[in-house]
Amino acid sequence: MRLQAIDVKLGYGDRTIVNGLDLGIEAGTVTTIIGPNGCGKSTLLRALGRLLKPMGGQVLLDGKRIDQTATKEVAKILGILPQAPTAPEGLTVADLVARGRHPHQSWYRQWSSDDESAVAEALDMTGLLDLAERPLDELSGGQRQRAWISMALAQGTDLLLLDEPTTFLDLAHQVEVLELVRRLHGQAGRTIVMVLHDLNLAARYADRLVAMRDGRVVAAGAPHEVLTEELLLQVFDLDAKVIPDPVAGTPLVVPIGTRHLPDRGTAAKETVST
């Protein structure tokens, strides 16, 4: 187990979002957390990446309590890409990616040859070498997302947590980012944990799915075990057909309608009348 959440209680202020959750992330797997909005998936990911301190329970990184490990040491093992990250205005791609070397630097070790090669490699792997000198705000959404992933790569960790890395991207760019994730996994056997919204892409690019609802893990396992018609109803209140993806053979969700509202017929009338 690379990462383990044991009986964690998570929330912000007085609000508890996750209560008594257990989850283990195995080495060398791509795990994707799915679930409806507000189910606590990002909260869980933030706790796994020590961005959020649990109110109860504990998170273990390689068997050691993450909150008792120096945050700089954690940063050498685990890289996290937050949801919708922000960078200072006018920052270039190269500057952003170089920032990923922060945990390896100190005042007498500001820019080693290791830093230089790690940044070059990260830029190369994400196909950004030609854009290195461009300001981040001039890039397209997909390029910018690749730049952030590149920064996490430059950090040189074999454990990566990505919070909705495909938000705001069109389908082609979503696929591009997820193929990059798959490549990163394939090249060095990196362990990757992601939060994704698109169930079909999640099924295609993950080894393991974790389905959450109301702060609990409802199901966890291989995509074809988790992504069933019963589960979709249970987790998303979604009536759907699940058929094999004609390209990858992974489960493909074809929605029929939701059961969020008690009666679809009257709900539709109400919307019309208001």
């Binding site: 020590r50 945050t71 040491e73 954690v74 050498k76 996290i80 949801q83 990250p85 922000t86 960078a87």
Partner: peptide, 8 residues
């Protein structure tokens, strides 16, 4: 979150 993620 980025700041903490970088080990600061």
């Amino acid at each position: 979150d980025t700041v903490t993620g970088l080990g600061v």
